[in-house]
């Protein structure tokens, strides 16, 4: 068993980094936590600091100002860490990629393990994405 699969065998704790996002992805992530989708039954939980997390969830396009902060957060993370680019903006920059302050898609800044596309992805898509990531 490799170190990676050993680390991610049990409950995943997720840290959510919102770049310059429009909020929709953030809401759908929170939606996953509440009663209908209840992601906590899989042991997943949002945590307040990256130092406790197994997964770094990045939503929203990244502008120049938060680019440096994203790198900082990634460097603070305990390795190994799974990075998930969330939503159309997280994957490619989406509609804001042509803006004058766009700092680059997430995968040009930090290595990304999984992409969950959609604007915003439905909670079901989030669950499916995480399951796929775990079975990788």
């Amino acid at each position: 068993m490799s170190l990676g699969s050993y680390c991610f065998r049990k409950s995943l704790w997720v840290f959510h980094f919102g770049g310059a996002s429009c909020n929709n992805c953030d809401i759908e992530i929170l939606d996953c936590l509440t009663s209908r989708y209840d992601i906590e039954r899989f042991g997943m939980q949002l945590v307040g600091t990256i130092r406790h997390a197994d997964v770094l969830l990045v939503s929203g396009s990244i502008n120049r100002k938060c680019r440096a902060r994203l790198l900082k957060v990634y460097n603070q993370a305990p390795k190994p860490i799974l990075v998930v680019a969330f939503g159309a903006c997280g994957c490619t920059g989406g509609i804001f990629a042509e803006g004058n302050v766009f700092g680059g898609p997430v995968d040009t800044i930090i290595p990304v393990d999984a992409y969950i596309p959609g604007c915003p992805p439905k909670p079901e898509a989030i669950l499916a994405g995480i399951v796929k990531l775990l079975n990788k």
Binding site: A20, C22, N63, C66, I95, F96, N100
Partner: peptide, 26 residues
């Protein structure tokens, strides 16, 4: 969170702007 939406809109047609302003706030 500055995304330069006002600037992006200047390069969009009137119909396309709807999809940009929709994503100002989810």
């Amino acid at each position: 969170n500055h995304r330069g939406i006002e600037k992006i809109n200047e390069s969009k047609t009137f119909d396309q702007v709807f999809f940009v302003v929709e994503r100002i706030c989810g």
